[in-house]
Simulated assay, not measured.
Amino acid sequence: MRYIFISNVSLLDGGACGFRSDVKNAPYNGLISAGNENIYKSGAGCGACYQVKCTENAACSGNPVTVTITDECPGCSDARFHFDVSGKAFGYMAKPGLANTLRGAGKISIQYQRVPCSYRSTKIAFKTDPGSYNPDYLSFEIEYVNGDGDLASVYLIPSKTNKMIPMQRAYGATWKAQIPRGNFGPYSVRLTTVESRKSIVAANVIPADWKSNDIYRSKVNF
């Protein structure tokens, strides 16, 4: 564990990772954080989970809380590693009855460590981007990834061919691909994580008649 600075923000819109209002609901439950570039990693760090705790402030309980990276903190340069955790997560680090006192500190030193994400029975979900309305272009945001949480590569697999179509990171946790003509759905999606390099295939998760701004839930997770 290393000491870094942590500050208290609201983070209710999902931020630069693209999770949108989902961050307020299960399984994230508002226990989220933005990170500086060493944590956000130009979007590659989206979805990673960290355990954070504080001990140096009198209001700190010393109990850890796990947060998911859902946003970037581009102006956070006062430490090599800087988290801006949600107000809810900030309160979880406090002694009983002292949540507001700890939040009032604004910025504190903490300890942190990278931990596996665990969303229990929740399966990986794919939320199509509002701009995906052209059958030759597909973009979606990927959520609820157990284990590493962040993704190194994503491939789209049309149902009538074994040829995988590589996707590119559009921003944050949103990936995009041009679909060559003749490659029809439904589509499977192959995911590979960053740290462990594990791969998984969500079979036929994107239907042939997919629509923009819709969500498609798989039957798999790491």
Rank of each mutant, 00 (worst) to 15 (best):
S196E: 08
W175V: 00
I108F: 06
A16F: 11
T70E: 03
L11F: 09
C117T: 11
S118I: 02
P130W: 05
C49F: 06
K24T: 08
Y171H: 06
F90L: 07
F140D: 11
D209M: 07
S77H: 10
V201H: 03
S61F: 08
A16V: 04
S218I: 04
I200E: 00
S33C: 09
P74C: 06
G18H: 04
I179Q: 05
S118Y: 14
V67C: 05
V115L: 07
N100H: 10
A58I: 15
A170F: 08
G62R: 03
Y144M: 07
P186C: 06
S42E: 13
V154E: 02
G182H: 12
L12S: 13
N146S: 11
M167A: 08
D209A: 15
K107A: 08
Q111V: 07
N36W: 06
D136F: 12
F5Q: 09
E72M: 14
S153W: 02
N8D: 10
L191G: 09
T174E: 10
N63H: 12
D22H: 13
V52H: 02
R181Q: 14
K24M: 14
Q111Y: 12
W210I: 01
G182K: 15
D214V: 14
C46T: 00
L138G: 01
L102P: 03
S109F: 15
S77C: 04
S118T: 03
N25I: 07
C60W: 06
A208M: 13
R103V: 10
K160Q: 12
T174H: 07
I69R: 11
C54I: 13
L98D: 09
G18E: 00
S7K: 14
I32T: 13
C46A: 07
G43P: 00
M1C: 13
I110N: 03
F5I: 08
